[in-house]
Design a protein around this nucleic acid. Sequence first.
DNA 1: AAAGCATACTAAACCGATTTATTGGCTGTG
DNA 2: CACAGCCAATAAATCGGTTTAGTATGCTTT
Lengths: 353, 353
Amino acid sequence: MPRPKSGTALRSRKASGQRVSLKSLAEHLGLSQAAVSLVINRSPGAKSIPLRTQELIRQAARELNYRPNHLARSLRQQRSYTIGVVVPEISEGYAALVMSGIEDHLLQEGYFYFVVSHRHRDELIEEYPLLLQQRAVEGLIAVDTAITGAAQIPLVAVSGHREVPGVTNIVLDHARAATLAMEHLTKLGHRQIAFIKGQEFSSDTAIRWESVRHAAQALGVKINDRQVGQLEGESSSPVLGYQVTKKLIASGEAFTALFAFNDISAIGAIQALREAGRQIPRDVSVVGFDDIQSAAFQNPALTTVRQPLREMGMLAAETLLRRIAAPPEADYPKEIVVQPELICRASTGAAPR
Amino acid sequence: MPRPKSGTALRSRKASGQRVSLKSLAEHLGLSQAAVSLVINRSPGAKSIPLRTQELIRQAARELNYRPNHLARSLRQQRSYTIGVVVPEISEGYAALVMSGIEDHLLQEGYFYFVVSHRHRDELIEEYPLLLQQRAVEGLIAVDTAITGAAQIPLVAVSGHREVPGVTNIVLDHARAATLAMEHLTKLGHRQIAFIKGQEFSSDTAIRWESVRHAAQALGVKINDRQVGQLEGESSSPVLGYQVTKKLIASGEAFTALFAFNDISAIGAIQALREAGRQIPRDVSVVGFDDIQSAAFQNPALTTVRQPLREMGMLAAETLLRRIAAPPEADYPKEIVVQPELICRASTGAAPR
DNA sequence: AAAGCATACTAAACCGATTTATTGGCTGTG
DNA sequence: CACAGCCAATAAATCGGTTTAGTATGCTTT
């Protein structure tokens, strides 16, 4: 049974800013590094070490405030307990909500994560996954970003829509989302509906527009091309929605409702409509998409199709960790579909007669 | 002069998912790891290696797509090029803007960062800095968070207000901020002004309130305690501002202007005032704080005291990296003050007579 | 008394880099 | 011809852990 050396070493070490290493801890205990490591990690190999000694080791570790160097451990174990998150931009409502869901699950499981934002620059979208892999992340989550190269590590995409080998896509049921919004508007009597499509680079743009066209057709609503605008520019400000709505108004085509690509653009659209003298929802009803935090606190409060963004983030993290734990050749889900919800607030109303 | 072995090894390695290590690269080249490392890193030690060989090494590295393992490098060099960012929560507003500024500067300098959010739970505020240090971060940025223990690594606090040894505080000039807002309101003729204070846990609450009281006194405005409310609860939703404003209204004390703790609560306040039949700004003027993205797109657009949050994030990152680069005993700034700006929009107007 | 077995550990390899000290060959010089 | 000095590298230590294989000791069993 080992006995710790005099308390002096302990105190001096505590006083000095020196970090305690396994080596110094083992020396202080008069044991080998191996023994200490086994006990600290509660490895199966520690079962031959008497409880008395184990207790001594743990106590010394506590007193010396020993904290294993995570880098060294990761290197040896080939496990970093770290993942990478790639987002277009951090300051935006969308990404922030998804990230907060991701974080929730990850930290709970002892994982940390790196965030990088590419701001839609292609070379960064290429480079960041490589840089992250160089930093030994065990998996990637891409938010609203089309990762190009097949990754050698598990990858979960939130709102990605490409079928890439090795990727799990977490996607909204866009057909249902479009139907919810369009049914809501048609039930209110709207027939002349304007639309704002997303930017070309947004991974949701194509599928969402496709879904809207289907839903419109199913409901017998004709889409007038001159009542369809598209967001342009990389900023995530309502200004984009404002500008495109100005154009829609200027085109002179009458519409009684507008279905925007997202809440941000819906907010800009409302501003533009109001400046043109249209009251919301008396003259024009507006439906947003996403249900970001501030949607509920617009004036009028925004009717919107809610994406469960936080849940999607949690789901992404959960799925990723499951894939990391599974053997590399194991099967994995190609797609996970989540359901939208229509949140009826005050920006929609009966169509004017 | 070494000559690479046959191309077969190259192709097979490229085909296999095996990551290329320094060892395998050196073997392939018929050189030692040391030589390859020196060349790849352009170390001074590489100057004795002929350019011809250097070129061969670099070319092989490119072809085999060699990427040094960052963990191993960090371990050896005792530098991780990683910092930790501690925020209360990853939300749309405050923290996201600061983070985006931090990111801007960090990634540019080759640093990555971990984010953790503590949601105001004390044990997490205690634990996360330790966990981050275990992961060998070289410095910490704390956003709106009072880090308790003195850290062994450089620490920059955004809106921290404690004088802790080892900490650089990035703070707003609160005196000026309060003066800007109060002068604006008094010039518009307001005398009966209500206030919403921040939650107890927010590190800005105390100093901002102190500044407001000073500014009020200097301008000859009396503060009526029954016209002062305080945010309660941990959520970052406008609901908190809504609730406290309801109470203020219920108390029956008349006021013609309201200065909220932040934009989020101002938005809730406007909702509450409107429900009580007050028009903004005809009956009541409202001033927010922060200038978050959606402030400009409220209806009416919010007059607010702008904090340069993105710039504060960038400044924090810049300061931190400078401190990391400096020798440990070097002097460092205890406080860096940034200036607010009054953004006049449509939620304030002349006081009703 | 030899073999078998559990107990209580330890030595040493290993993860993948960086970095210091050293080596062997060659050329030029006193 | 011995010696210094340069060139072109290399061997080996190191970072701080984890993990495998092994060893010394004592006790029981045949």
